[in-house]
Structure formats: structure tokens, C-alpha cells
Write a protein that binds this DNA or RNA. Structure first.
Lengths: 134, 134
DNA sequence: GTCCATTTGTCCGTATGTATC
DNA sequence: GGATACATACGGACAAATGGA
């Protein structure tokens, strides 16, 4: 499973392993990952390393942590459609810490930034919003 | 500066501090941050905690790491404008590992996904592309 | 080219805090 | 209260890559 002598870092190997289980559906949306302690024991690595792996999956937006209940495969959010008005521009970036709290964004979720012609910006959570041009 | 007894975690306080320096311009694009060891000594905290703070800024896309040269304030990319055609939809998400390599994306850079009416998707690096509605 | 200092990457162990069940 | 689980923070150690002497 995990080869400490391999070229790829152990925490990346574990992240790959869990990512595969999520993408293959063997770990479905809403399902819990094994606890950090469990994973550490199962693969004979330290909890620190397990946390690095899970941190990786969090930044990828694949899992969310509900502390201290556990870590879960992210459930897709219902999509809201937002029309892009004429002359407006849209871009995406990662939110700041403050924006994360304000919009209750999960980790690994970007924001869509819509800039109006007068320069005012509106920020939308990218996991719940899709831009349209009707 | 940093208050270990404060409510906000130490690594977040350091991230806030560095983020302010970047956003205020006192740390300009391309400029190096102090080394992890330097920051640890300067603020009397452990290197682990410094790395957590820098990791935060990386996920926010504010800095890039050029190992082992150092950590630098990200330099803005020239923006390419892409028109959103009628009926197309756009969303943003974090790239997969494969996409990161394919588009040479820095950490903390999302992708813009444009879905045409026939369902085909095109992927654009969010730090170099802005959507317009002409 | 070699040696060495610097810097980030990885990994381990430990401890304490806090929220949930 | 007790057990469980994640968050934070500390410490140490070694590896790998770069760059300058």
C-alpha cells in the first residue's frame, strides 16, 4: 500500500490512496473517512503524517472536517445560477481567511468575483454558484 | 505582535501579519519572505507553526515557494480576456493534480471551467483569465 | 569541481485544548 | 464523567536542492 522508501512522500501516497477511494465512489459523498488515529495505526505512520494527507485533500476541496465528529467526503452543494450582466467581468481566486468565515466556505472552495462596470465587486462561493449568459 | 494567549491561533496571527504586509505593499510582488527559521526566531514560535502560517498563504495564492531558494510574494500574471458566449456557463473549482501539472498552476490557483451548450468543458487558469460579457 | 551554509520538505514523537457523544 | 476526535503547538531529525566561496 504505502512504501516509505518510495520517491513520493508518504503523506502524498496516503492522499492518493484516499483520493482514489473518493473518486472511485468506494467512499461516497457524506461518508466518513477513518479517524486520523485509525489511519495512522492502519498504515503504520504517525498521526502528523496522516494530518498532512488529509490537509492535502482539504485544500483540494474533496473532504470537509466536522470537528470533532470526523472527516467526511464533501457533499455537492445545490447550484444557484447568476447571470453575468453586459460589461461585467468575472474571475476566480481563493478566499482570504476572513472571506472563508464570512461565507462559511469549506476549505478548498474558491470564490467567483464579479466586477461590475463601476468597479464594485461581488463575491460568490464557487461551489454553490454558476455564471450564465442568458 | 503575536499573542499566544489570544483566541486566534498563533499561526493564523502570523498569516494575518504577513498578509497585511503583502496587501499593504510593504512586501511587494517577487520579494522574498524571511526564511522559516528567521520568522520562528523573530516571533519566538516553532518552525512548525511558521510553516502552518505560510501554508495558509499558499492556499490563498498569495505566495509561491521556490525550494530551496525561499518563499516569495506571488507576481500577478498578465490577464487574458475570454468572452462568455450565449448559453455558456462558467464555474470555478480547484484543479486536479493532473490539471495543475498541465497548466503549470501555482498552489492556490483555481481553474475557471466554461461549459458550452453541447456540454463540452474548457478549463482556464484563474490567475491568467477573466471572463467578459461584451 | 568541491565544500559548505542556507532553505524548504518530510517525518516522527509528545503535549494540551476543545467540542461532541 | 469518560471516551473519542480534531486543532494547535512544541521539539527534534534528516533529506534534497540551491548558490556562493
Amino acid at each position: 500500500m504505502i512504501d516509505p522508501s518510495a520517491d513520493r512522500a508518504v503523506f502524498r501516497q496516503l492522499a492518493d490512496l484516499l483520493r482514489n477511494q473518493i473518486e472511485s465512489g468506494s467512499l461516497g459523498p457524506g461518508e466518513p473517512l477513518p479517524s486520523e488515529l485509525r489511519l495512522a495505526q492502519e498504515y503504520g505512520i504517525s498521526r502528523t503524517t496522516v494530518r498532512q494527507a488529509i490537509g492535502q485533500l482539504r485544500t483540494e476541496g474533496l473532504v470537509t472536517v466536522d470537528r470533532p465528529r470526523g472527516t467526511f467526503v464533501r457533499v455537492p452543494e445545490p447550484i444557484e445560477l447568476i447571470a453575468l450582466a453586459r460589461g461585467e467581468r468575472a474571475s476566480a481566486r481563493m478566499p482570504t481567511d476572513a472571506e472563508r468565515r464570512k461565507y462559511r466556505l469549506g476549505e478548498g472552495v474558491p470564490v467567483l468575483v464579479v466586477t461590475a462596470t463601476d468597479g464594485t465587486e461581488t463575491v460568490h462561493p464557487a461551489d454553490r454558484v454558476q455564471l450564465t449568459r442568458p
